[in-house]
Design a binder for these strands. Structure first.
Lengths: 342, 342
DNA sequence: TATTTTCGTGTAATCGATTACATAATTATT
DNA sequence: AATAATTATGTAATCGATTACACGAAAATA
């Protein structure tokens, strides 16, 4: 370790006090111009670097923020993180990454660890496991650390959130499928204790209703967000008395599985069967049979979450802010559901 | 901010010293068992949490490590980071993420910022911009902070690295294309000042040589890692007097572009033309015409980089360790190059 | 019983920077 | 020139935890 240079070293060299050095370096107006210049020059020549840990201890602010996601290796979450990092970096914050792997236990652990590490804020997307226990969240709030949910959110007093309008996403997609002539539209959903899945489902339902199509319980299948799950779900659907002629999947991966399964059964897409997904994962665009999907503008979502945090971080402690930002979803219509256009 | 509980508060309550409290909580054997229990119980009841910043300042270790990548929203880097996080989390380290966006300037900024933030180590993948200036790296080394390169590496005294055998990856892929009957194999490369691209190229060249096929300079095209770039490159290649009958692309995205362009020209894949990529991005597997690609086991790479860091972090300061780990690449043969199998 | 060990705790310095308050040095005012 | 006002700097506490050293009390030994 190269000998660390502190303000005391600079002070000693110049026969002044550390306090003066500190003030000079912080542009305190009470310092004589000549002294300031001398200190700054000497600091530079001695290769002085401010010890951020000491500063953090003194000020109580670490300039770190924590980000908790189910996993980082999904395009959606990685893009959100990118947005967060890009917005926060210029403000001098470092981004600490934690993963939950959809485990509530790890979610709680991460929350406690981050608070212990004195982060200045936490931005997170919930696990898909339901839980009534808000203990860890209350702990965060009680420490007065700004907490912002993005995408996967739930209502907790004092917690802000940035989401997209999932209802609208579901509605638009379903409406589009109806416009393409589909009349028996199935839906792949996720755990509806998560608002995102609930709302996509409700949008789907409302669209059916508004267009005079009966909602059928049996058309709703709960799948994991995985290719295999999509295949199995199609298998189930095709055994119904009236099999559907379209699927609105709340997951791109399940949508892909569905398409693979349909192809294997020689069902022509989009002619006989339309499919649409959700998230606009890169592969949906790349496929030869490109997949219609709802874009969640993850980059924008990350930046927005970061901005909400920044707004809250310096506010007086007494005012509890609870901001709900809802971004507009964007339906990308592609081959898998385009009977007319392509 | 809920009043912070410190060891002094506990000490006061029990009419003992903070020193005793500290010792009790740290399982110092000099503490009487009854005292220890009392302290621990009281600490729990008062909801005491150790202040990590104070600890970090005292010990000089932040328990943070920095990870610098070109961008986080690529499956490869995200997966590496996942590996790093999973390996380091159980060891009590937090992972701080930085992006360079392929800018040398930002790379240097990030290095300085991380050092200033007292990270205990830095794991990184280089930008694709060449630079002779190692100043920032020297700064890191001089501070005796372990530095580990992964994937995109270059030789610097005292820096460890974890890479895959890119030469072998290039060799295996090219050999495979030859086995499928291709005799005019083109290569999409990246900036060869980066060892990864240099080595993939060399592997390609060697495979040609070993199988009695002439190497042609005109078959090597330098492309960005992007779909459009692949299309343009194919356009160029097909204008040659003897157009190639296969492409080994050092990028999956460029390979995808190539495939799209070839299809548009009604060139049949793999019958008339074979294509193989590199990185095993998720979409290569998902396509109907799935794309042959080299897997770099990013998860494993991340874990390995983390382990190399862990080995170095506690070593006596005088021994400079320089470990080079080379992982084996794995060729995933898929439809885009399988004349025989599928 | 007197003396040496051992054990358990307290005292105070330390990590590096910031800052309220005090004081010295300078300049302005009468 | 004497006093007031201003400016620049020093002193020392603080953030919260750790730890070398010191010391009193209890236990072991002579």
């Amino acid at each position: 370790m190269s000998e660390k240079v502190t303000i005391y070293d600079i002070a000693e060299k110049l026969n002044i006090t550390a306090a003066t050095v500190s003030r000079a370096l912080n542009n305190n107006p009470k310092i004589k111009e000549s002294t300031r210049e001398l200190v700054i020059k000497t600091a530079a020549s001695m290769n002085y670097k401010q010890n951020k840990l000491a500063l953090a201890l003194k000020s109580g602010r670490s300039n770190n923020i924590g980000v908790i996601v189910p996993r980082i290796d999904s395009n959606f979450f990685a893009s959100v993180i990118r947005g967060i990092e890009e917005e926060l970096h210029p403000n001098g914050y470092q981004v600490i990454i934690c993963q939950t792997h959809e485990s509530k236990k790890r979610e709680n652990e991460n929350l406690y660890t981050l608070i212990d590490a004195q982060v200045d804020g936490i931005l997170m997307s919930l696990t898909d496991v339901t839980s009534e226990n808000d203990g860890a969240f209350q702990y965060v709030l009680q420490k007065n650390v700004p907490l912002v949910f993005f995408d996967r959110s739930k209502h907790i007093e004092g917690v802000s959130s940035v989401t997209i309008n999932d209802f609208r996403g579901g509605y638009l997609t379903t409406k589009h499928l109806i416009n393409e002539g589909c009349r028996h539209i199935a839906h792949f959903s996720g755990d509806q204790s998560l608002e995102i899945f609930k709302n996509r489902f409700l949008g789907y339902k409302q669209a059916l209703l508004d267009h005079g199509i009966d909602f059928k319980e049996e058309y709703v299948i709960y799948t994991k967000s995985a290719v295999e799950a999509g295949k199995e779900a199609v298998d189930k659907l095709l055994q119904l008395e009236t099999p559907p002629d379209a699927i609105f999947s709340a997951s791109d991966f399940a949508a892909l599985g569905a398409i693979q399964e349909l192809k294997e059964r020689n069902i022509s897409i989009p002619k006989e069967f339309c499919v649409a997904g959700f998230s606009n994962e890169p592969f949906t665009k790349f496929m030869e049979l490109s997949i219609t999907s709802v874009d969640q503008s993850p980059l924008e979502m990350g930046k927005m979450a970061a901005r909400v945090f920044l707004e809250q971080v310096d506010k007086t402690e007494t005012i509890k802010i609870e901001k709900k930002v809802v971004l507009a979803p964007e339906l990308h219509i592609r081959k898998s559901s385009s009977r007319s256009t392509f």
